[in-house]
Design a protein around this nucleic acid. Sequence first.
DNA 1: AAGTCTGTTAGGAT
DNA 2: TATCCTAACAGACT
Length: 275
Amino acid sequence: MPELPDVEHARRCLERWLLHKTLARVAASKTRLLRGSSVAALESLQGRRIENVRRHGKWLLVAFDGRQGLALHLGMTGRLSLERSRDPVRWSRAQLETAEGTRVHFQDPRMFGRLAAGSLARLRHELGLDQLGPDVWDEPPSAKVLGSALAHRRRAVKDLLMDQTVLAGLGNIQATEALWKARIHPARRAASLRLDEVRALIAAIRWTLARTLKSMGTPGDTTAAPPGSKAVFRVYGRAGETCPRCRTRLETMRIGGRQSAFCPKCQQAWRKRRR
DNA sequence: AAGTCTGTTAGGAT
DNA sequence: TATCCTAACAGACT
C-alpha cells in the first residue's frame, strides 16, 4: 500500500493517536533500523512529548520535544495500527505506547520498512530529505519546473515519476493511474513530453492522489474502503480488462522492473516530441 | 503445490 | 553521470 496516500493516511492516524501525548515506552524487535540509528536512540525518546507528525514523500517524521525525532518508512508492506484487545497483532516489528496506554504497532511482514531515532537535524540528514524532490501533494511543481526536470532525460517517464529525487511520493500504482489519466504512454522517454502533456500530467497526479486519499476516509472511519483496495484504481492491476474511457483492452508492460498497465489506444507510444 | 507475483529503495553493475 | 538491475524478505495468488 504505502505510496503517498497511504503514508498520508498513516500520518493522520499517528496524529490522532499520539499528538501531544507522552511516549512512555518504545520497543523495536525485528524492524530494520536506519543506518546510524540504534535501539538506544529509540529508547531515549521515552518520556518525551510528541509535538507534530509530518510527512515528506513516503517518509514520516515524528517530532518530540528537545528537537528529537522518530523517522518511519513503511517500505512495501508496512502499516500502522492501533492495538485492540481482541486479536493478536501479526508481524508487529515495533511498538509505541503512550502514558495513557494507547499502543501503536508498526506491522511489516516483509520487513522493508525503516525506523530511526535521533536529533531531528541529524535524521533529516541521514534520511537525505534534502535529496528528495518536492512532496508531490504538498508542494506540487509547476509544469515548467517538472518539465525541466524531465528534459534531457532518456528514462521512461513512469520510471522518473517514481524517482523520489525528482518527485517525492509517487509509487507504481499512482504513477500508473496518473499516466492513464493524462493519456501518456508509460514508456515514453521523459524528454519527449510536450509542455501541455506535462501540465496534463500534473493535473492527473492530483486527480489520482485526491481520489485515493478520499477512498481511505478519515482515520477511524470504518466505512471507508480498506487501504489498497483495488476498486479505486482505473487501470492498475487491470490488464486484460477494458479501459474505463474507451473500452479498449488494457495491456501491461514491464518498466524498470515494475508492472505497468496502460490503454494502448488512449496512451499512444509513438507521439514524438514536437520541436 | 511449485512457481510467479507484489505497494520500496539502496547499492552495485553497466 | 545516468541508467538499469537485483537483493533484501515473506506472504498471496494461480
